[in-house]
Design a protein around this nucleic acid. Structure first.
Lengths: 209, 209
DNA sequence: CGGCATCCTCTTTGATACTG
DNA sequence: CAGTATCAAAGAGGATGCCG
């Protein structure tokens, strides 16, 4: 990217991460951990292959990611965030919180990966009863399952199916999002195709920030 | 901007503010308040005029700014952030904090406006003695003067010269930044051309976050 | 003067195909 | 698997002109 040429910390930050796709690559590496090239492509539907290669080179040159040749049996290149790269989580959190409103009103034509719930869920949900025992809500939106762990005042999205979820929401991403965001009643979501199995009262445990 | 087409709050946010120059326009409106077209151009050196006009239209369509015809004697169009637009301050804060490191190492060829110190100063300085009386540090980097007000646990950058600054730093932006960031000793900065007039002990009042 | 629109060039991105 | 190569399309940058 051409530098803005401005002595301003915001402009300097955007000089490095303001390019198209760059912050979404960081999003993948933050939510997924070290990734292969192929993993990144899968998590970034729409990106052109040459552009991904270019961005990875730029991110490496900027010191935000490292490229390591994993030993057998993996035998592949792994892209991983440096500490400096991981510090961008605060930026993604801020963007994720600001962007939540757009998710509720989005139409159904978007691509979806379950890990993308991370920045929405962790930034606008909160544990309304930190002293109560931890509860988990399993989410299944057709993609790989994830679950939300709520407890100790923290809300965290984790990969994989919950071992013993208190509640499981199955259905389209928009319905799950609508219910979690409190923009959709459970009734409405159910009649639109969402299925909710388990203890429905745990929904009250996650309040909007 | 072409939408990423991803059902992710980060991607949705970037669909709206991910375009080149967009967040810097928001920066100007946050640090300066309502601006005329000409004010924006002055605060965004390097932007093409047609591009600014395009971005302003997009921001208005997205509901982040409003355009109001100011009555005489001003008799001009004023661009102003909506609440939704102002909520982007958190994003700019996060970017500003992340980008501070780049300012210390930047070369001297960048454009500079004193209000650009805002996101650097407010995000990496802190009031180390909240109970002590407020102190102000005047900054004069050749541009319009600004001053940092430190007190009550808060650090704020304000426009204009301080009425009675406890300390005044005059010199190149990088020298002022280096001293505030603690990356440059006052001696080194002075021999590089910085002048510091007043009570030097107030520098200890602003610690790095 | 303030707020653009036009025209032109150059760079970046996108889509797809191909390769060690 | 991890990229290049190629080419078309879109966007950005810069100069200038227009109109109240």
């Amino acid at each position: 990217m051409k530098s803005y040429g401005q002595y301003c910390s915001v402009a300097k930050a955007l000089d490095v991460v303001g390019d198209r796709w760059t912050l979404l690559i960081v999003r993948e590496l933050i939510t997924q951990g070290p990734c292969r090239y192929t993993d990144l492509r899968a998590g970034l539907p729409g990106i052109a292959s040459n552009l991904l290669a270019t961005r990875l080179r730029e991110l490496e040159a900027a010191g935000l990611i490292t490229r390591t040749a994993a030993p057998p049996p993996v035998a592949t290149t792994l892209f991983e965030l440096t500490d400096r790269g991981r510090q961008l989580k605060d930026v993604l959190d801020a963007l994720g919180r600001w962007g939540v409103d757009f998710m509720v009103t989005a139409d159904g034509s978007d691509a979806f990966r379950s890990t993308w719930f991370t920045f929405a869920a962790e930034n606008f949900l909160s544990d309304t009863d930190p002293a109560a025992p931890e509860v988990t809500i399993g989410l299944d939106a057709g993609d790989a399952p994830v679950h939300i762990a709520v407890g100790g005042g923290r809300v965290e999205l984790r990969r994989g199916a919950a071992p013993a979820p208190d509640l499981t929401l199955t259905g389209e991403p928009r319905l799950i999002m609508g219910v979690l965001a409190g923009k959709l009643t459970l009734q409405d979501a159910r009649s639109a195709g969402l299925s909710a199995a388990g203890d429905l009262t745990v929904l009250a445990r996650v309040g909007r920030v």
